[in-house]
Design a protein around this nucleic acid. Sequence first.
DNA 1: TACAGTATATACCAATCAGTACAATAATGC
DNA 2: GCATTATTGTACTGATTGGTATATACTGTA
Lengths: 190, 190
Amino acid sequence: MPREIAERRDAIPALGEVFREHGFSGSSLAEISQHTGLGKGSLYHFFPGGKTEMAEAVLDDVTNWFEENVFSTMLDSKHPEGVIRSMFEAVNCYFRSGERTCLVGAFALNDTRDRFGDRISKYFNAWTDALTSALKRTGFSEKNAAETAEDIIVSIQGALVLARSKQDAEVFIRTLKRLQRRIATEPHGV
Amino acid sequence: MPREIAERRDAIPALGEVFREHGFSGSSLAEISQHTGLGKGSLYHFFPGGKTEMAEAVLDDVTNWFEENVFSTMLDSKHPEGVIRSMFEAVNCYFRSGERTCLVGAFALNDTRDRFGDRISKYFNAWTDALTSALKRTGFSEKNAAETAEDIIVSIQGALVLARSKQDAEVFIRTLKRLQRRIATEPHGV
DNA sequence: TACAGTATATACCAATCAGTACAATAATGC
DNA sequence: GCATTATTGTACTGATTGGTATATACTGTA
């Protein structure tokens, strides 16, 4: 039995970059091959399902990252205020202060969603649930926690769109600050 | 001199649908030809610049629609409150209560932006300026007007992303309501 | 009816597409 | 060192890509 080489995993960051840059249908195997440094032989060895399987792997990787670095602590931490603050830090870090794009959101906006709909909704549902849970434990009412969580995720996604549209990452940074300020000052009740 | 047939204009809504559905690179001329009902001959007759010119025409059409139906009245109306309310109505109508996607935002999220960056930023800058102007006239301070305008456009864009991601147009409807409520209750000062 | 300019259909192009086949090579376990 | 298996490079496929060339049909005007 040969070793379980983890090279498949090693290719995923580069794959993510390609899909982020060109979208799904705009990412040719030639581009993917060039950017990952893997020939077609290797690519189809690691991803027999072709482009679709590559994108699935990237989406899973994104979700896993958020699951491990963000969602999990939000669901069970004893200090929800700190957890929400660190969510904003993680988000700011992951999206490179607005320079990076959200692959999941980008895939959702056209028919690419048809291929990966389950993974796309899973990502956003997990985020919504985790954030709602944390907000409730800071004293938000049930209803208000859900609405605020949606508001925050909406704003983060929109800020990524607008920052990239205007080529102005400050939009993203300002939005994160505004959201944090609002959480701190808003009434938490019904 | 022959008649100035406006058939080029007539093709634009169908072109918009194709680009919205498949993205720019995902829209093949075959698909475009089928969906518009125009053969390649006609397409290249009306749009000698090919796909790029078709997308430019669609983006210009989108911007013109907002310019005429939304931005212009926001810049000079005597009744800014009513104008802002009717902006939300127009937005809700244009995006079909969250069922439709923002073509400009979608183009911005990957390298399609490189081709159409000027039109993309023009669209969002015009929107930001018009909304800021209207908010100022409702009593918002200069700084707060600008920040609130950005907040609103960010939220609209993000709501479109999230609504389509979750296949739940209610996200969009809720977001519009929340934004209007916030404008009505928020302190307008510095 | 003749003409000019518009509109469209069709055939065609070289390039690229995603994906396959397979032989050659490299790594591993025994 | 041998057998097995993982990995990779290369050549190939048939389909599709965006775009061009061109011949024909249409339309309004004189």
